[in-house]
């Protein structure tokens, strides 16, 4: 089933002179893990805001073309309705938690939906356990580390049980160790619960191994869209300025020297494997 379907989508902010992105055609299938990447200012965040209706309902502006999310026409359904299908995790962990305890924060979305209290309690525990934050349940959010806060933010979205989770650079405020923990959680959601994941990310070194597909945006357009290995090994991707994983870079350098490995690796363990395969051939 197709969960997100955009056709010739073009959007201009109320204050903007030219479109933040234009002519975007995109299809995302149920259960897919998609990474969106591209240089700063290319319109990734703006595109994500369309996925749950923040654009056009919260931001206004001019949205042309068609976009359907889980069968709902985004232009016609309010954000709170789409938010039940599409969970959104933002960049800054600090500004996503506003209650005085973790538990209350995770409950917020469910409270808004009028879910019965007993059910809310169950879902809080469930979401906190999956994200590994159960022990933080009664702590005030502002006392947590950035990584913990971001996992709680994921839990608060998860508790609403969405079909799709959109994460906009969830690790850009975190150190590599914190980032890796976030990626583990996301990967688990995708693998164990077959949740559709859309992840905006620059740290391809750490995360591209989990992806089914990578989309590269440049200057408001989608310029690459396909299998991670193909996209990352392509010269076009490198020229745009996307941070290619070192393992893939190695593959390209070797290829340049006439050494053709089996396939482009995405991370160092895989690179070892591929090189071993090559040597024992």
């Amino acid at each position: 089933m197709t969960v997100i379907e955009a056709e010739r989508l073009t959007y201009t902010y109320p204050a903007g002179e030219k479109p933040a992105f234009r002519d975007v055609n995109l299809k995302i299938e149920e259960g897919e893990f998609v990474i969106i990447t591209g240089p700063s200012g290319c319109g990734k965040t703006t595109l994500c805001r369309c996925f749950n209706g923040l654009i056009p309902h919260f931001y206004g502006g001019k949205l042309e073309g068609e976009i359907r999310v889980c069968g709902l026409n985004v232009k016609e359904h309010p954000t709170y309705e789409i938010a039940q299908r599409v969970g959104m995790v933002f960049q800054n962990p600090e500004n996503q938690l506003f209650a005085l305890s973790v538990e209350k924060d995770v409950a917020f979305g469910l409270e808004n939906l009028g879910v019965p209290r007993e059910e809310i309690r169950k879902r809080i525990d469930w979401a906190l356990k999956i994200t590994g934050t159960y022990n933080l349940k009664n702590r005030p959010p502002y006392e947590l580390s950035g990584g913990q806060q971001q996992r709680v933010a994921i839990a608060s979205v998860l508790a609403m049980n969405p079909d799709v989770m959109v994460l906009d650079e969830p690790t850009s405020f975190l150190d590599p160790a914190g980032a890796e923990k976030i990626f583990e959680v996301i990967e688990r959601l995708n693998r164990e619960m077959s949740m559709t994941i859309i992840l905006v990310e620059h740290r391809l070194d750490l995360v591209s191994r989990y992806a089914d597909r990578i989309i590269v945006m440049h200057d408001g357009r989608i310029v690459m869209n396909g299998d991670p290995r193909e996209v990352l090994a392509s010269e076009k991707t490198r020229l745009i300025g996307v941070g290619i994983p070192k393992a893939t870079m190695l593959y390209k350098l070797l290829k340049h020297r006439g050494i053709n490995l089996n396939r482009p690796p995405l991370y160092s363990e895989e690179a070892c494997q591929v090189i071993k395969e090559f040597l024992s051939r």
């Binding site: 749950n52 923040l54 309902h57 919260f58 954000t79 709170y80 309705e81 938010a83 039940q84 969970g87 959104m88 933002f90 538990e103 209350k104 409950a107 917020f108 979305g109 469910l110 409270e111 808004n112 939906l113 009028g114 879910v115 019965p116 209290r117 809310i120 309690r121 608060s156 979205v157 609403m160």
Partner: peptide, 14 residues
């Protein structure tokens, strides 16, 4: 907004 603020009139309280 992304957590369904204003979705229903009778919101529960934890």
């Amino acid at each position: 907004e992304s957590r369904a603020w204003g979705a229903c009139k009778n919101r529960t309280n934890l």
